[in-house]
Write a protein that binds this DNA or RNA. Structure first.
Lengths: 209, 209
DNA sequence: AGGCATATACCTTATATTTGGTATTGATAA
DNA sequence: TTATCAATACCAAATATAAGGTATATGCCT
């Protein structure tokens, strides 16, 4: 049984050539191709595809919106994003929204088949360059700022981040509330923040614990 | 000029066969091969490699330790991790610590050369299966808990997370402090928390914004 | 040994937050 | 059309926090 594909691509030429490419392959079956993701919920319902190929930059309702719309109704349907390589932000957004893989348009002819295959088998096809972006996003250590917190201050900050009040921190650490106050004051100075919320936010976002 | 390689692998047979494989290739130059990462700092200093191939599971001082040690002295040196197992935890740890790529040992013969090439050119070579793990780690939406916050409450929570005080939130949203207080009270109830720090922590960790 | 920096500790007071209420309006669902 | 809910708004009080001090111990440098 061939793999049912739903395609979204606003450029008419590319949409047609991709359609031909898919139709030419006996293992693949093109359900339909659209120029934007308006009504994508209905399309999914109507065609019940095995995989979706999705351009990112489309007018009216783009690929990210389409991706989100699908993920609301189907958490597992493989969705391969297609794009030119210049848009780091879109790539990360797409991945955070649950895209299955990421193919650069320039490599479609050589990689599409194996990418579809990988995606259907639980893999996440992406070029090494895209993977590098993703890894850099995870690996903050390269740009991790060091606020030179003392061991005690780190403990207190960790405890704050866990949602403990001054009173609870004092009890856990075996020190007085006054001392907790003092540590937190110093933490705020070093981190240049002025509230728990800001400190916790900064600590988590910058992964400094 | 050949690419200088430093190899860490505790299994003698595999280390030898990898060494032979590298020496057989004119583009590659094996600086040295070791069975664990003790003294890795000295090795880096002595051999000044272009890339490091690192097994993860080694006795005494393993590949993750070695990776961390290198990253303390060189943020950019490409480091490819090698492993037999699809060990989720090790893969994620390695990536968080700044590994450049991840090769499963079963694919070394076919993928090592291109992986080295990718790594040297700023890419992050990894198999689709490994990439899937990484993406799942980023994309929490599958297990995202829904606290059913209203749009306004999400705005307020976002603002809290940005480190704003009640007063600032009121000004930014164009509502009174009393109303901010009221929204936050409702947010706390829905999220089952009792302070800013806890709410911010939960919001960031669970990625609900 | 003396001087210095730092981590730790505690106090105090002015603000801010938390939590309990109540109430109005507009939009939406039953 | 009634009932519910979201968003808005305010009051009041009990607590918690932020930011200003000061003090002691410890290790480090000379």
């Amino acid at each position: 049984m061939p793999t049912k594909i739903l395609l979204y691509e606003d450029n008419t030429d590319l949409r047609n050539s991709l359609s031909s490419f898919i139709e030419f392959n006996n293992e693949l079956l093109l359900c339909a191709a659209f120029e934007n993701t308006v009504d994508i919920e209905d399309h999914i319902d109507t065609y019940d595809p095995d995989i979706v190929l999705m351009d990112i930059d489309m007018p009216i309702r783009n690929g990210i919106e389409g991706l989100k719309a699908i993920r609301k109704i189907d958490k597992d349907l493989p969705i391969l994003m297609l794009t030119i390589f210049d848009d780091n932000k879109h790539i990360l957004t797409a991945i955070q929204e649950g895209a299955t893989g990421y193919i650069l348009k320039q490599f479609i002819s050589t990689q599409l088949i194996s990418a579809i295959d990988d995606a259907l088998n639980g893999g996440a096809p992406m070029s090494p360059a895209v993977a590098r972006l993703v890894l850099n996003h995870i690996n903050q250590s390269s740009k991790k700022t060091d606020y030179k917190l003392t061991p005690r201050e780190k403990e207190v900050l960790q405890s704050l981040t866990d949602g403990n009040s001054y009173k609870m921190i004092a009890a856990n650490e075996g020190i007085s509330i006054g001392t907790v106050t003092s540590h937190i004051k110093n933490i705020y100075e070093k981190m240049e923040v002025h509230s728990q919320a800001e400190a916790v936010s900064k600590a988590l976002k910058e992964n400094i614990l």
